[in-house]
Computed example of a mutant assay.
Amino acid sequence: MSVMDKLKQMLKGHEDQAGKGIDKSGDMLDERTQGKYSSQVDTAQDKLNEQLRRDQDQPPQP
């Protein structure tokens, strides 16, 4: 079992909290870097949220 599979199992049922964590951590990173990498952080947040939604829509794998 890969690390991603383990993470997906751990997040199952807690997608809302994971999404909030992604947003909060990105905002904290923006604050600590004084917005220097804001566009890269926003892109990473978008991709992580997209992956989270995509995994939520797929049926569980046996």
Rank of each mutant, 00 (worst) to 15 (best):
G19V: 04
A18W: 00
D42L: 03
G13C: 03
D57E: 15
D57W: 08
L11N: 07
Q9C: 11
D30C: 00
P60D: 01
G26Y: 00
V3M: 12
I22W: 01
D57M: 09
K24T: 12
Q58M: 06
K36E: 10
K47D: 05
L48F: 04
G19C: 06
S39H: 10
D5E: 15
Q17V: 11
P62D: 09
Q58K: 15
K36H: 05
I22D: 05
S38P: 12
G19W: 04
K47R: 11
D27A: 14
P60M: 05
A44N: 08
K24L: 13
S25I: 05
D5H: 09
L48A: 01
Q34F: 13
G19A: 00
Q56H: 00
D16R: 12
E15W: 02
M28Y: 09
S2H: 00
G21N: 09
Y37A: 02
Q9G: 13
M28Q: 13
Q61W: 12
K24M: 12
S2L: 01
N49G: 05
D57G: 06
G26A: 04
P62S: 04
T33C: 03
P59R: 07
S25N: 11
V41P: 02
K12R: 14
E50L: 12
R53M: 15
M1W: 05
T43A: 07
Q40H: 14
M28C: 09
K20H: 09
D55N: 03
Q58N: 12
Q9W: 09
L48S: 02
K20C: 02
D27N: 09
K12C: 08
P62K: 08
G26H: 04
M10F: 15
G13V: 03
E31C: 09
A44Q: 05
K20W: 04
G19R: 03
R53P: 06
K36P: 07
E15M: 00
V41M: 01
K12S: 11
S38K: 13
V3K: 11
D23K: 13
P62F: 04
K36T: 06
H14Q: 08
E31Y: 13
A18G: 00
D27P: 03
L7E: 02
G21E: 14
S2P: 12
S2G: 09
A18M: 02
G21P: 01
Q9L: 10
D42R: 06
P62N: 07
H14F: 00
P59W: 01
Q34A: 11
Q56R: 12
Q17G: 07
S39I: 11
G35V: 04
S2W: 01
R32N: 09
Q40E: 09
Q40S: 14
E50N: 14
M4Y: 07
M10P: 06
V3Q: 10
L48H: 05
D57K: 10
K36F: 09
L7Q: 07
D57L: 08
A18L: 00
I22V: 07
P59I: 13
Q17M: 15
L7V: 03
D27V: 05
K8S: 12
D16M: 11
R53I: 12
